[in-house]
Amino acid sequence: MMERRVSGMVFVLPFIGLYCFLLILPFVMGLWISFHRADLFGSRHWVGLDNYVRLFADPVFYQAMGTTFTLAVLIVPALTLITLLLALALNRASRSAAIFRGLFFSSSVLSVTIVTLIWRFVLTPDSGLIAKLLTAMGIEPLPFLSDPNLTVPALAITTIWWGLGLPMMLFLAGLQQIPQDMYEAASLDGANRWTTFFRITLPSLRRTTILVIMLQTAAQLQIFGQAQLLTQGGPSGSSRPIVLYIYEVAFGRWELGYAIAAAEVLLLLILALMLAQYWLSTRGEEVQR
């Protein structure tokens, strides 16, 4: 009997083996290397917490953190509001609504390099689409990709264009789950459109909204390709988010241990966010009961 039971393991072992080798092992290696002065070519020297101490004294690290948070603050509220409005407008059974939903989602299937290629020549001041439109209206083109005050908003706009699809679909799924009889009861009570919206729709979307905000924040903390390709983090580091900083430290300065230490700090931020989401959505349910 015992033999048969152990043989059941055969089905899960191939995955477990690869999972340990490709995810768990690198994860543990990462923690270990972060306590070393290590370069990309394998030389290692134990330094304890030194990488972390240096990190929290590094103005470039703080600048990258600041840029990342600015990006998140620019992107997350705007994206949440826009996709909520789109979902409300497109939550109907008509054929045209389906086409619009497909259109707003379509940019999400493109890779980051295609998106930046498209947006580079929308944003660039000499030959870009926005510059052409502004010039046609007699306005001086804006140097989106080189003015330190404009690079971060330019990255935010590109990211919003790219990322509308998923949150819109999540809001649509949330709207579908609201029982129709709640609206019928409200209309019997003579509630107007706005009362219905603020008393029924918005409270029912609470969990979805928390989910969207947390997912988007986690995604924006890890923003990378847009910044690396569109602005190379410049000018003078003003648009360098944290993952680009990690990339540059590892592959530009070859300081592997230091780069991984920065990645571990990012990991803690993301985990804190996941816990916050869990806490917020479960606490809400207790209140409602």
């Binding site: 477990i16 490709l22 092992l25 690198p26 994860f27 394998g42």
Partner: peptide
């Protein structure tokens, strides 16, 4: 049914909490 089935399943689910950024550099090294 096999030994440590639940434990292994939870072990796999833990992987959902590990973002790419935390493993990509050591994996590159590996």
């Amino acid at each position: 049914d096999f030994p440590f089935r639940r434990t292994l399943f939870v072990f796999v689910l833990l992987g959902l909490a590990i973002p790419e950024q935390a493993v990509i550099l050591p994996r590159h090294q590996l």
